[in-house]
Amino acid sequence: MYLVAHIDVDICAATSCRLCTQFCPEANTILYNTEAGKDRGLKYGSAYVAVDRCKGCAQCVWVCDNMAKHNAIKMEMIDQIGDQALTENLTYSEKNCTAVLASPVRG
């Protein structure tokens, strides 16, 4: 098994920095759902990771901890983080990208 980035929606959706989306070396990997967290009163939406694209470099962790100072991203084992976003389940719309979550191990 291997490590992938995992973003805490409750922390991320309380801010609007979006820095991790800009600093990931992989294209179409850290995406942004403007609706995430709104059901819990959080207003900004949240970044999330298409884990099948993540190479585990942890640059987003450094950016979130040191530049944004939000500490919202952690590296976690891919088989222990539950259902996640996968590229095949992404839906792009006008200025937004949502995902139906699925098991990254079983698909």
Binding site: A27, N28, I30, C97
Partner: peptide, 16 residues
């Protein structure tokens, strides 16, 4: 970025 589909795709360059 993160809200639109980028035209660069998955590539074989090293992590990070």
């Amino acid at each position: 970025v993160g809200s639109f589909k980028e035209i660069m795709e998955e590539h074989p360059m090293c992590a990070g």
